[in-house]
Write a protein that binds this DNA or RNA. Structure first.
Lengths: 151, 151
DNA sequence: CTTGAAAAGAACTGCCT
DNA sequence: AGGCAGTTCTTTTCAAG
């Protein structure tokens, strides 16, 4: 198992927030030289702790005004209907994330739209017509704080 | 307002999935030269459509086995109790994301833990003792598909 | 728009404490 | 383990067609 000290954790956290930072810049924050920092990052990378690097979109600049979380309970379950549902939901461009969950809902969707009228269109014409959909609950995003994680 | 053509959209989408790709590599996918691609990306970047670049953590490698979404309804609302709640929830290291929402819940939390017993500890000792908490609903993540977005 | 080349910066290596 | 000095590679920028 991988051993992590406080500096490793701090490096991971910093890279989660902004992956653009170079090894040199990161090192200065911890009084480490560029190669020392680089070696630590390489060790973490080789251990596979880093997943994909992605860039977030600034949704406001793209005319996206509302983000809504939908909790969906399926009416009919079973292997086939799950796959049908997942295939159909993947075809909706406004759906950013599809999470298969266990609990109150069966699926949770993160959906974006330009405004509420636009969201209503997506909801009525795309989401409510998905195969097997039973109950739908919605939460509109007001604000969001993402953090590095527990490590 | 920023004008986007299909290539711009495809570039954005590709960068959302993997921000490591160089302008040259991206360009080859669309039969564009490296400088042409680079200029398009720079134009998008200057327009502010790209938010922070982050790296995802491979939670399994870090001993994190379960991800749970909590929907929380506050018992007492008002400006003070919201701020109290947000401050307290930010102090829980297992909380990855805090979303203030409008609808069935007041807050949604993305919480990670090593396993279910560990999650129960977090739930009982940290989450259920948060100030103002009323009702809590949980969904355990089974699988997740993230996509580029609606643009 | 293209190709080609130069400048800047980051990544990587070896050797040393 | 960390630091220093150097090399290599990529990214970024510019010149010219």
């Amino acid at each position: 198992m991988l051993e992590l000290d406080d500096i490793d954790r701090a490096l991971m956290q910093a890279l989660c927030v902004d992956a653009t930072q170079s090894a040199g810049a990161l090192g200065r924050a911890f009084n480490l030289s560029q190669p020392a920092t680089w070696r630590r990052i390489k060790r973490l990378r080789d251990a596979g702790v880093f997943g994909p690097r992605r860039v977030d979109l600034n949704l406001e600049k793209l005319g996206v005004g509302v983000t809504v979380f939908l909790g969906i309970k399926l009416a009919t379950k079973g292997r086939v209907s799950l796959e049908d549902f997942e295939r159909a939901v993947s075809a909706i461009p406004e759906v950013q994330t599809v999470q298969h969950v266990l609990g109150v809902y069966d699926y949770r969707l993160r959906v974006v739209a330009q405004d509420l009228p636009d969201f209503e269109r997506v909801l009525r014409r795309r989401v409510m017509t998905l195969p097997g959909v039973g109950n739908i609950e919605a939460n509109v995003l007001l604000s969001e704080e993402r953090r590095a994680g527990p490590i």
